[in-house]
Design a protein around this nucleic acid. Structure first.
Lengths: 199, 199
DNA sequence: GCTTTTATGCACCGATCGGTGCATAACCCG
DNA sequence: CGGGTTATGCACCGATCGGTGCATAAAAGC
């Protein structure tokens, strides 16, 4: 489905530029990331950005997709773990590592990218809200399966368990943004996992 | 220490205006809240705002102080509870209610007010980071006391326990911003409190 | 060569940003 | 009544916001 190359070829690597944009959004949030900051980090002009990615909102959506497929890909491994407890463990430890990755902004793009925003950030905020809800649904479905497999006690509430685990992850993202270290957060994750199943 | 009234008296209630500004910051974040939105909500002109509060940063600081003394005053009650477990319980249930107060924005000003920001929001972000750290320190000191009183097991780590409790609160703030209801969050808080002490 | 198509750089757009100068208004004190 | 002091409304500031028009450049297909 590759479009045959017609016209002047672009002079930059779109994936590399998107990676840079992702980091800027991650660090400064949707509203805080100006086109000037984004294009400077991407190493391209405004015009090239618009031609390649559409506009700021679309760039943000694409940056978030890249974030999902890269930084946050540990969630896939988590969902494939054999027990509910391992799911929670892989998810939380993966979150900690993603939130405290050297060379990357502290915290989680999906949390700090657009939590409270003005008029211009509404779409980005809604995109992230949906993004977090989607992750939580995946966890819930997995815990639902665990109940059916007698891996979690009959009568367990998969919604509550998923929300509990996601709340810990969200909280650790805020902690990381505030400067918490990987070791500190791993201890928090460990404490949260002492409590299993959490209800 | 009241300054004698000299000159034309102001035509608005400063406390009421500050309350309105607080809500706007709470809802839209520091960067998302424009002077236009703030002054419109406050019902005063730009000039009156600058005369009464200094500038946007100072207004934010004062709004945060008002938030601390009003919305978040439950932390005082929490710290005065008789057992460490009650401290955590009052703190977390208080957080839930503050995060889901009808007629107020969902979530926590101290979290979503300025988590990731551009150049212009650095100060606000640092103010909030310090604010959250301050709350966590109060919890830590209280849990330290609990250790000394044999209310928590000898060898317990007050830092870890405080961070654990604050992480839950931070996570619930994100959840609330994403639309979680009071009942859902109370269940999460209940689940987190099943685990006590958390390490 | 030519046309067609796409990319790039630059200058520029109207709108909005936070913040201010200035004239006027409303109060206290004498 | 002044004179001093503070508040208010309006117009305006330079800077920056996200986004674009246009001329030029570099490729493919003929």
């Amino acid at each position: 489905m590759e479009k045959a190359q017609i016209g002047r070829p672009r002079e930059f690597d779109a994936e590399q530029a998107l990676q840079k944009a992702m980091v800027v959004f991650w660090e400064q949030g949707y509203e805080g990331a100006s086109l000037a900051a984004l294009t400077e980090a991407m190493g391209i002009s405004r015009k090239s950005m618009y031609a390649a990615f559409g506009n700021k909102e679309e760039l943000f959506r694409k940056a978030l997709r890249r974030y999902s497929e890269g930084t946050v890909s540990y969630i896939v491994d988590a969902l494939e773990a054999t027990t509910a407890r391992e799911v929670a463990e892989v998810f939380l430890t993966g979150s900690v590592r993603a939130n405290t990755r050297p060379g990357c902004p502290a915290g989680c793009l999906g949390v700090q990218g657009a939590l409270a925003v003005g008029e211009t950030g509404r779409v980005a905020r809604d995109v992230l809200t949906e993004w977090r809800a989607g992750g939580q649904e995946h966890l819930r479905d997995r815990f639902q399966r665990a109940v059916e497999e007698d891996d979690l006690p009959a009568g367990s509430d998969p919604d509550l368990i998923a929300r509990y685990v996601m709340t810990i992850a969200n909280g650790m993202a805020v902690q990381a943004a505030g400067g918490a270290t990987r070791e500190e957060l791993l201890r928090v994750a460990g404490a949260a996992l002492l409590n299993w199943p959490p209800a």
